[in-house]
Simulated assay, not measured.
Amino acid sequence: MLDHLVYATPDLGRTVDDLAERGITLSPGGPHPGLGTRNHLAALGENAFLEVIGPDPEQPEPATRRPFGIDELTAPRLVTWAIQVPDLDAALDRARAAGHEPGDVVPMSRRRPDSVLLTWRLAFPPDDRGGLVPFVIGWGDTPHPSHTAATGTRLVSLRGEHPDPASLVPVFAALDTELAVTEAAEPALVAEFATASGKVVLK
């Protein structure tokens, strides 16, 4: 099932302010130590959330490039999405057996503003087809971020665009997930949200 959407930006503070003006209220998530990033979150209902992630000015420059292509961005972009599974290792084994390489497991952690430590494990696919193939995440016993994220935003729809939609069908099947994808010149994710201020579309 959908875990979260990743909206990456080269300027986190400016993007958080812009989204707030458009009706999406976000709460501070926390820094990702060593990666040079931090995030803000909005709960979307049904244990899902929107993650807005960008450079953390309070961290030194990371030894490697920031995730989600943040260092190359010139404007905010909906870069990818994640699906949540109860047993990460079993889900990855099933995907490989079905012909999809979901990537290797990476352990992650961050502290919430109230000092609660969150830990999780995820796997990024080597080829995410322009962000349309989700990465897989397992939260284990850690509190899910959606439970403490800012409320007031609801996900209405999520869809994709890709030059070859048919090529994605077996990948989604291997991951036991679905995404409506229409043909377009460039890959893109498109999400529509309902807020108290009206509709917001991020791409």
Rank of each mutant, 00 (worst) to 15 (best):
T153S: 04
S146C: 02
L155Q: 10
A150G: 09
E183Q: 14
L179R: 15
V171N: 05
W139F: 14
V181L: 14
P134S: 06
H162G: 01
A149F: 04
P170C: 05
I137T: 14
P163V: 08
S157P: 00
A180W: 13
A173Y: 07
H144C: 07
P163N: 15
T177N: 09
D176P: 07
L158P: 03
T177C: 12
A184P: 12
P143Q: 08
F172I: 04
E178D: 13
A180Y: 14
P134W: 13
L158R: 15
W139R: 01
F135I: 01
T182S: 11
A166M: 06
T153P: 08
S157M: 00
L179T: 13
P165T: 12
F135E: 03
L179F: 12
E161P: 05
I137P: 07
L155E: 07
G138Y: 00
E161R: 02
V156P: 00
G140A: 00
P163D: 07
G152F: 04
P165D: 02
S167W: 05
A149I: 00
L158F: 09
E178A: 10
P143T: 01
A149C: 04
T142G: 12
L175M: 04
P134K: 09
V181W: 12
G140V: 05
E183A: 06
A149N: 03
G160I: 13
T151R: 13
I137F: 06
P143W: 09
L175H: 11
F172V: 01
T148W: 10
A150I: 05
L179M: 07
V171W: 10
P134L: 07
S167D: 13
T148I: 08
A149K: 02
P165G: 03
T177G: 09
H162N: 01
A150M: 01
L155K: 08
D141S: 09
P170N: 08
A184M: 08
P145R: 00
P163T: 04
R154V: 10
E183F: 04
E178N: 06
T153V: 09
L175S: 02
P165L: 11
T153I: 12
T142E: 08
P170S: 05
V133D: 07
A180F: 14
E183H: 02
F172M: 13
D164F: 13
I137W: 15
A150W: 06
V169T: 15
T142S: 14
T153H: 03
W139T: 05
A150H: 01
H147S: 11
S146D: 04
A166C: 02
L179S: 05
V133P: 03
H144N: 00
A150D: 10
A180R: 15
D176N: 11
R154P: 00
S167C: 11
